[in-house]
């Protein structure tokens, strides 16, 4: 496991906010030269700490005003092929993430929709029609706050 110092943590914190900035700009924020910053980013990337980069889009500006977290319980646990259910859920364009979880539900999905009526259409036509899907719980997102987590 890689050991991090305060500067590494500051670099990671900066990159989770803006990974588009170069090593020079990032170095000025954390108080390092451009080459020293670049070497640290390289080390963190090679150690697998930086899993990848992701585009942060304003979903509302894209016309997707509703985000719903869905808990899905399988109806015939043990008799449904998990791979088939996962593939079918992942193939729904409005489903952003599919997580297999241990707990009250078997799967946790993040679903985006234009509005509640659009979400109802996705739920009725795409999710509830899948074989193996049992109880479903919907949590409509009101607000979301990103915190620093262990590196914050």
């Amino acid at each position: 496991m890689i050991a991090l110092d305060d500067t590494d943590r500051a670099i990671l914190r900066e990159l989770t906010h803006d990974a588009g900035q170069g090593a020079g700009a990032l170095g000025r924020v954390v108080g390092l030269s451009q080459p020293a910053t670049w070497r640290r980013i390289k080390r963190l990337t090679e150690a697998g700490v930086i899993a990848g980069k992701r585009l942060d889009l304003d979903l509302e500006a894209l016309g997707l005003g509703v985000t719903v977290f869905l808990g899905v319980k399988l109806a015939l646990r043990g008799r449904t092929a998990l791979g088939d259910v996962e593939r079918a859920l992942a193939a729904i364009p409005e489903v952003q993430t599919v997580e297999h979880v241990l707990g009250l539900y078997d799967y946790r999905l993040r679903v985006v929709a234009r509005d509640i009526a659009d979400f109802e259409r996705i739920l009725r036509r795409r999710i509830m029609t899948l074989p193996g899907v049992g109880e479903v719980e919907a949590n409509v997102l009101l607000s979301e706050e990103r915190l620093g987590g262990p590196i914050g």
Binding site: M1, I50, R54, D56, D58
Partner: peptide, 23 residues
């Protein structure tokens, strides 16, 4: 226009020793 807010790095928490994530 703010449609693209930013490019963000995703942290692999397990590489930092946090192997369990709970909601």
């Amino acid at each position: 226009a703010g449609v693209i807010r930013a490019t963000r790095a995703d942290i692999n928490w397990s590489a930092l020793g946090y192997s369990v994530e709970v909601s």
